[in-house]
Design a protein around this nucleic acid. Sequence first.
DNA 1: TCATGTAGTGGACGAGATCGACCGGACCAT
DNA 2: ATGGTCCGGTCGATCTCGTCCACTACATGA
Lengths: 157, 157
Amino acid sequence: MDEIDRTIVNLLRADGRTSYAELARRVGLTAPSVQDRVVKLERNGVIAGYTAVVDSEAIGLGITALIGIIPDNSADHLDICERLRAIPQIESCYFLAGVECYQLKVRVPKMADLEQLIHRVGAIPGVAQTRTTITLSTKWEDRPQPIPSDGDDHGVD
Amino acid sequence: MDEIDRTIVNLLRADGRTSYAELARRVGLTAPSVQDRVVKLERNGVIAGYTAVVDSEAIGLGITALIGIIPDNSADHLDICERLRAIPQIESCYFLAGVECYQLKVRVPKMADLEQLIHRVGAIPGVAQTRTTITLSTKWEDRPQPIPSDGDDHGVD
DNA sequence: TCATGTAGTGGACGAGATCGACCGGACCAT
DNA sequence: ATGGTCCGGTCGATCTCGTCCACTACATGA
């Protein structure tokens, strides 16, 4: 994970379809060696994959909400987690240090779908209470920040 | 936005580097017509871009936190938003319906950076209070859900 | 009936991806 | 010092892919 790797990762975060040839020109290497580095970054888990960034409103998922979950004492977190994962509308799921020990980011087409979703989450065994907040607007989302160059490889070779 | 477009978008969300030739094979068209569709999806804003999915821990951003902002009465939201945007560690920013009218998702290398960040956000004029929650683990994040096929193009041609 | 617009096909050509062979410096043990 | 080995890179050949353009099929509407 040297300076060149960081540059490659930053370029691929800015445009995930950048060709190896273009990356090579940017970092001053040839295409095969850039490809070699990218393959290694993928194998090491630094690059987990590539995805198209889609406007959720344009595909009919106009409503975004955050749902906090307060568990009861009997909560089996493996089970809760599994049941949450089975709900496709939950795009993100964080385990938090706080009373609300999960926060979900969900997207649905209509308010009725959100209501149904809240009921479904609330019905999961071990969930004592949920607290839902509608997002009025998304100012920005998943903006890549520059990779810190503190030299440490953080355990990933 | 027909069934083929939805398939293309789903394929590109699953792997943003899928070639036009491969997409063409999957949807039963030729590469040029698939490219034509993708270009239109990009122009219409359905596909906003492409990005590499990076493991934040592997690049030294091991700490994720959620920061809620409670504004005071004098809050100038355009100004707040602009100042928040200038902080690179804030990866996402939602405007919410609630007492905490913003929620930020931030990533930093170390706790000391988080502390500094909280002070910086708290010092923004119009911010009365912040409430920070550390994420102990990310169960999953930005999982793409199938595009609802309700036929409506949602105003985007 | 005939223009017109839309979406797709097929071919051609340049660019990119990918593989194997080779090169040179760093490191290590003899 | 010498030679072996590993690592990362380059070079060249080949195959695939991207991209442009001309042509076709089909639905729409005057």
